[in-house]
Amino acid sequence: MSKQFTFSHNLVQHIAHLASIPVDETEVASLTQAFNETLEIINSLQSLDVKRVEATHHTTDLTNVLRPDRVDKSQMFSQKEALANAQKTYQGYFVVPQVIKNKKV
C-alpha cells in the first residue's frame, strides 16, 4: 500500500457493488472526489503513535451481557404485523426479487 493512496473510479465502482448502492457515472466521479477529500482528514491520524495502544471497541466497559434463552411472546410480531410494511407479499410470504436468473441452454 503506497502512502499516496487515492480513490480511483474503478475502486469507487467496486465499493458501490460491495455496498449494493446503485450509482451512475456522474455520481462515481463526484463520489471519488468527495472520498479523496475525506481521505485527507482521515490521513492526519497516521501521524499519531499508537504502537502500544489497545483499541477501544466499547466505551463504558460492560462485559458479558447475557440473557436467558427463553421465548418472549411480548416481543413477537404476528404474521400480519411482520408483513404489514412489505412492498409485496404473497399468501403470507415476503416476495423477494429474483437473484438467480434462468440461463437459456
Binding site: V12, I15, A19, S20, I21, E27, F35, T38, A86, V95
Partner: peptide, 22 residues
Amino acid sequence: IRYGHDRSYFGDEAKKRIMLGT
C-alpha cells in the same frame, strides 16, 4: 423487501457514508 423502499432511495449523504464505511 421486509419494509421500506430499495437502496436506490438513499440520498447522496447516506450513499457516501455507507460506501466509505464499506
